[in-house]
Computed example of a mutant assay.
Amino acid sequence: MSKILFNEHQRRQLELNPNVASISDRAIQYKAEFKICAVQENLMGKGPSQIFIENGFDLEIIGVKKAKSSLSRWRKTFKTYGEQGFLEERRGKGSTGRPSSKDVSSEKKLEKAEARIKYLEAELELLKKLEELERLAKKRF
Rank of each mutant, 00 (worst) to 15 (best):
L127V: 04
G94Y: 08
S106T: 10
D58L: 05
I51R: 07
K31M: 03
L127F: 08
K66M: 14
A27V: 15
L43D: 08
Q40M: 08
S95Y: 15
G92L: 02
D25Q: 15
E125N: 13
F78K: 06
I53T: 11
N55D: 08
S24G: 01
W74R: 06
A115V: 12
K79C: 06
R12P: 00
D58N: 12
S70T: 01
K109S: 08
L124I: 05
R26A: 07
R26Y: 12
L110Q: 11
K65M: 02
L71Q: 02
L43V: 13
R73I: 01
I61T: 11
L59V: 05
E88Y: 12
E111I: 04
L16W: 13
D103A: 07
L14D: 00
E111V: 09
E60F: 07
A122M: 12
A122D: 07
G45N: 06
D58W: 03
Q13H: 12
K112M: 13
L71E: 00
S49K: 06
I53R: 15
W74C: 11
E15A: 05
I53N: 01
R90M: 10
L120H: 11
I53F: 05
N42Q: 05
P99C: 04
F86G: 05
V104Q: 08
S22K: 10
W74T: 00
A21D: 04
F57Q: 08
I28N: 00
K109C: 11
E89V: 08
S100W: 04
F57I: 14
G92S: 08
Y81L: 11
L124D: 06
G47Q: 09
G45T: 06
R91P: 14
E60Q: 13
K76R: 11
K112A: 15
L14I: 03
G45E: 10
A38N: 02
A21V: 02
K68V: 03
Y81N: 05
E107L: 12
S22L: 10
I28M: 04
V20Q: 01
S70M: 06
E125H: 13
G92W: 02
M44K: 15
E83N: 05
A27Q: 04
L120D: 03
F78A: 09
K35V: 00
A38Y: 06
K112I: 04
D25S: 15
L126A: 13
E41Y: 06
L120T: 09
K93Q: 10
S72A: 15
Y30K: 02
R73S: 06
I117H: 13
C37F: 02
S101D: 09
R116D: 13
E121I: 01
A38K: 01
G45S: 12
A122S: 14
W74D: 12
M44C: 10
R11E: 04
Y30T: 09
E89A: 11
E83Y: 04
P99S: 06
A113E: 09
L16Y: 12
I28V: 15
R116V: 07
S95C: 10
K35L: 09
Q13T: 02
A27P: 00
Q29L: 15
Y30L: 15
Q50L: 14
K79L: 14
A122V: 08
F52D: 04
I28S: 02
G97C: 05
K68T: 02
A115R: 10
L126V: 03
K118W: 09
L120V: 00
Q29F: 15
K46F: 02
A32D: 13
T96D: 03
I23A: 04
S101N: 13
R12I: 03
T80Y: 07
E107N: 13
